[in-house]
């Protein structure tokens, strides 16, 4: 392809890609509308470059854990963070898939996870004559109780593998849950959506024993004027 043509295609391609927007108009609590066309989260793209997409496809094509190991991960995750109505738990949050993906994305994590899963079954077989995933909840807890406390004074890498394993699995389980749709609902996070910030609500200020300084607030944005084009006098005083 001719150099110039390929450049123009590339550039036009970028600009033309703005078609197919999902519009989102939003009326906020204080009545000020965000009157802009804002693209909602798209399932199809999540902003990866071609090289990044290639990496994800490559990782997805690899298998780190077999079916038994995936079952064991699932079984452990719900002991770590039991499901709770109405926002489910690690399974609804797809924690096992995250564990598998991160084990491949961050290769240093793989031996800890693989070795830890083997340890878990070995321990469970020795103590109770059964694999971890088939053990009773009481038996599972008995094993977890032994490995769920790490020494906070010592680097994790200097502690027994099973301690490192549990620490890593707890991390992946809790972070996996709270970065999922159900976990975000459980947390109550209200952000990541268009709105008009107009300060901390009064009940929150009261709860935490702080107040706005009227002099400070007088300098802040008057959100009813946000769409009026800014104009200043020669001294830099905002007129609009």
């Amino acid at each position: 392809m001719d150099r110039r043509k390929s450049l123009q295609t590339l550039i036009l391609g970028g600009a033309a890609a703005t078609s197919g927007l999902v519009f989102n108009s939003c009326k906020t609590e204080n009545g000020e509308s965000v009157d802009q066309d804002i693209v909602a989260s798209s399932e199809k793209y999540f902003g990866r470059t071609p090289a990044e997409l290639e990496r994800i496809e490559k990782l997805n094509a690899q298998e780190l854990f077999n079916g038994h190991e995936m079952d064991t991960i699932a079984a452990l995750s719900v002991v770590i963070l039991p499901p709770k109505e109405p926002h489910g738990g690690p399974i609804e949050a797809e924690v096992p898939a995250l564990v598998e993906f991160m084990g491949k994305d961050v290769p240093e994590m793989a031996p800890i996870l693989l070795g830890g899963l083997m340890w878990l079954d070995h321990k469970c077989n020795t103590e109770f004559g059964t694999e971890f995933k088939s053990a009773t909840l009481e038996q599972k807890k008995q094993i977890c109780d032994e490995i769920c406390w790490h020494d906070t004074e010592k680097p994790l890498s200097e502690q027994p593998l099973e301690i490192q394993f549990f620490y890593t699995m707890r991390g992946l389980t809790v972070t996996g849950y709270y970065t999922s749709k159900v976990g975000i609902a459980d947390l109550g996070y209200k952000g990541n959506s268009p709105n008009v910030w107009d300060g901390v609500p009064q009940d929150i200020l009261d709860q935490h024993g702080v107040a706005y300084d009227p002099e400070w607030i007088a300098k802040c944005v008057d959100q009813s004027q946000r769409n009026v084009i800014a104009e200043w006098d020669d001294e830099g005083n905002l007129l609009t």
């Binding site: 798209s42 902003g47 997805n60 749709k181 975000i184």
Partner: peptide, 18 residues
Amino acid sequence: ADPKTMTQLKQPYDSPRR
């Protein structure tokens, strides 16, 4: 403004690595 490369307003669960 290109939705293909955009990361604004993405949810953590839009990505396999969150």
